[in-house]
Write a protein that binds this DNA or RNA. Structure first.
Length: 779
DNA sequence: CAACATCTACTTTTT
DNA sequence: GTAGATGTTG
């Protein structure tokens, strides 16, 4: 055991460190780690970049590293900052550390998601950014409603400039760490004729008035505090002796800046920061993640040690070969070669062509039942889809089969309407100035308070610069409102006063139940005849039950905003259905990947919006999907898929062409119709029977190749005049020109009349159509 | 002000 | 095909 580092007298660091006097502890952890993993665990001092391929034991390294730091007494639990992206990952790390060091995680207060740690820090210094420490955390729903109010106040037509779109802009800015004053006017021009910057400033002001912060603020305002108050930052420099970041490839600029500020306590070359990631699994570019963060880590922290974990312990050789071969088609990557640990080749990767998504569901259901009969557990199987609408078909099929399944992801518990309503009541009790909560529930259940009355309340509140509840108190003393509304509102504030009073004596979960009953909210759903109302009542019960686990109402509300993710009961044996995104970090014996069709996967929108960079991200998504499988991998292609209610012929995904032929086994379901499918074709030929069918010569493929040549980068992002990050964007120049004669599989020949990215408007005999350029060729 | 009917736009991924 | 959002009517 290394000599222990003397610790300055510091505030209570929690229970963990007190318990290790076991000299053998370290060697016990290190057992079973390979040389690289061990190196990553033991290289505690100085910057470290761990490039961990899929299935190479990344989480194990992280948790062992923390355990090692703790048991070697290099730091106490409270001195380690350890950030993840998802609550799931944070929870898993806590469990595994607890398992390793045999203690509870009470001593690791700074292990959590970026957002929860950001919130924690921000609450301690809220007054520095004009908030109180009990500020509310807005979710997307509140955010949209607030934006709508602002748009209305500015007389901006909501039809033309939807609130959602502005929310997207806001998100983008906040992800890049931009305050209203940092936004360049050019970017503002896209929305409401340049009013976007002002709207952003107004929005932030409104948040301050409401004593609220949105998700982005949890980091952005933290950064602001750090920058404006070096003393505060210094406090964290002293506190955090070690920093660890999971899934670094998913970090955005704001997160990057936040980390960089926190790491500045020491010269960069001595910072004890360890980031773990895999550039090949970067799949969140669309929400601002910058793969470049990981690519430039060595520049940020000169002398950083780089360790590659390339030994895969998860998948069979065939699966690994398929994944490696596919991802090799990406240009922008650091390049790793995954190697099996001398494992078996295993089954080949099955590729099945089916007629449509219904047959796809039938066929997969069938195979699952076969596997089940052979003794495989449903828990070991998963269906990973590109888009959530694909899930329904499987659910329907599995219901008729009586096959147990569970959907992971989907709408979160706290995003359900009834939960949000209930929470609004509770929020308002905890904090009467929460106007958004007030507006949400004044008329839920229906109380005869309509838009006109609410408008009066709102205007009065704004004029008097008081919260809406106070405005109500004032108005009920006047003749401003009709008698009916007046008495209703008087009754309502009376009830809230009553509840607030009771909240001091009654346990919060009991109070919650009383509030729901007395407000008439429970009754509202009891009266409701729609089929989902029993479920809603059930959810409300679940909400009240879950509150028991928390110390206080405040603690509960914080938890629900940031952490409440559904931990789906693993108890029952069931097939998992989820999106590829939510599958990251998981593994299953058998993985089904349906819907490998152009347009769906790679998703058309990714291609349209981000060109080749988008394609590469889709390919990484495919890579993530393939590498989830331990022993058995099944892909499928539907020849027809219904999109927006109409049937469309589908073209097999180009990703299928990128799998090595020798590990793939094409299975024919025998239901292929008229020339589609694989009958009589070469084994590795996945394109349909169209005239442009030759492998690697599809127009889309050629275009992708052509575009590799003409890279084009947008202006790189700079902050403080320094290059922060630059995404690889290779543009989407079209191989076609207006006037070109082209041939389309379905519409025949036509003339190009307009080009918009890779979407072409073409006059066919059948009329003018918008089509994707990968569906046509020059005529 | 609420209920109903109609219309529409929407379907990538989420802390 | 669906679920929201809007508009119209009572």
């Amino acid at each position: 055991m290394p000599p222990s580092v003397p610790l300055p007298d510091r505030q209570r660091a929690g229970a963990i460190t007190g318990q290790f006097n076991r000299p053998a502890a370290d060697s016990a952890f290190l057992q079973g780690l390979n040389a690289e993993q061990r190196d990553a665990v033991l290289s505690t001092e100085g910057p470290l970049l761990v490039l961990a391929g899929a299935g190479t034991g990344k989480t194990r390294v992280l948790t062992t590293r923390i355990a090692h730091i703790l048991t070697s007494r290099r730091a106490r639990g409270g001195e380690i900052l350890s950030v993840t992206f998802t609550n799931k990952a944070a929870r898993e790390m806590k469990e595994r550390i607890a398992h390793l060091v045999g203690a509870t995680v009470e001593g690791m207060p700074w292990l959590g998601t970026f957002h929860s740690i950001g919130a924690r820090i921000l609450r301690r210094h809220a007054e520095l950014v004009g908030l109180r420490s009990d500020f509310t955390i807005l979710d997307t729903d509140d955010q949209i409603r607030l934006i709508k109010q602002l748009l209305e106040a500015e007389n901006i037509d909501e039809k033309r400039w939807p609130a959602r779109q502005f929310a997207g802009l806001l998100d983008g800015w906040k992800n890049r760490g931009l305050m209203p004053s940092d936004v360049v006017p050019a970017e503002s021009a896209f929305f409401a004729n340049g009013k976007a910057i002002k709207l952003y400033a107004d929005y932030q002001q409104r948040l301050r008035d409401l004593n609220a912060a949105d998700f982005g603020d949890l980091l952005l305002l933290c950064i602001d505090v750090f920058r404006q108050h070096p003393d505060v930052l210094a406090e964290y420099h002293r506190r955090f002796r070690y920093m660890l970041v999971d899934e670094y490839q998913d970090s955005n600029i704001a997160q990057y800046l936040w980390l960089r500020l926190l790491a500045q306590g020491k010269p960069a070359s001595e910072a004890n920061i360890c980031v773990v990631g895999d550039d090949d699994q970067s799949i969140y570019g669309w929400r601002g993640a910058e793969v470049d963060n990981i690519l430039r880590f060595e520049k940020d922290f000169p002398g950083a040690k780089v360790i590659r974990l390339e030994r895969n312990y998860r998948s069979t050789a065939n699966i690994l070969a398929a994944a490696s071969h596919l991802i090799a088609n990406n240009e922008s990557r650091l390049g790793k070669t995954l190697q099996t640990d001398g494992g078996v080749a295993g089954e080949k990767v099955g590729v099945t062509s089916v007629w449509d998504s219904e047959e796809e569901a039938r066929q997969i259901g069938q195979e699952i039942e076969d596997l089940q009969r052979r003794g495989e557990s449903l828990n070991s199987m998963a269906i990973l889809v590109r888009a959530s609408f694909q899930m329904r078909e499987f659910e329907e099929r599995f219901i008729t089969l009586g096959l147990n399944y569970r959907v992971i992801g989907g709408p979160r518990f706290y995003e359900r309407r009834e939960i949000r309503d209930a929470l609004a009541y509770l929020r308002l009790i905890a904090n009467p100035t929460d106007d958004l909560a007030f507006e949400r529930i004044v008329n839920v259940p229906k109380r005869g308070i309509g838009d006109t009355t609410i408008k009066v309340l709102f205007d009065t509140a704004r004029h008097q610069k008081v919260p809406m509840v106070n405005a109500v108190r004032m108005l009920v003393e006047t003749e401003e409102l009709k008698p009916k509304q007046r008495s209703t509102l008087r009754g309502l504030v009376g009830q809230f006063d009553d509840w607030a009073e009771r909240s001091r004596s009654v346990p919060h979960h009991e109070l919650a139940q009383q509030v729901l009953d007395e407000s008439g909210y429970t009754e509202m759903w009891q009266q409701d005849k729609s089929p989902d109302s029993p479920g809603r009542l059930e959810n409300l019960k679940e909400l009240v039950r879950s509150m028991e686990e928390f110390e206080s109402l405040g603690g509960f509300l914080e938890h629900i905003a940031l952490v409440m993710d559904r931990d789906s009961g693993e108890a029952e044996d069931a097939v998992s259905i989820m999106t590829l995104h939510s599958a990251k970090g998981l593994e299953f014996d058998t993985v089904f990947l349906p819907g490998w069709e152009e347009g769906l996967f790679p998703h058309q929108r990714a291609l349209d919006e981000s060109g080749r960079a988008g394609l590469e991200e889709e390919r990484r998504l495919a890579y993530v999907g393939l590498t989830r499988a331990k022993r058995r991998l099944r892909l499928s292609v539907a020849q027809n898929r219904r999109i927006h209610g109409l049937w469309q012929a589908a073209i097999p995904s180009r990703f299928l062409d990128e799998l090595p032929a020798d590990v793939v086994e094409v299975k024919d379901t025998g239901s292929a119709y008229g020339g589609y499918g694989y009958g009589g074709r070469a084994a590795n030929r996945f394109s349909t029977a169209d005239p442009f069918d030759s492998l690697y010569e599809t127009p889309g493929w050629q275009r992708a190749k052509a575009q590799q040549a003409n890279r084009r980068s947008p202006g790189p992002t700079t902050i403080d005049g320094e290059l922060v990050a630059r995404s690889v964007d290779l543009g989407s120049g079209s191989a076609y020109r207006v006037g070109d004669t082209v041939v389309h599989l379905k519409f025949g020949s036509g003339v190009v009349v307009a080009i918009e990215g890779n979407k072409l408007s073409i006059d066919f005999e059948a009329g003018r159509k918008k089509v994707l350029d990968s569906f046509i060729r020059k005529g």
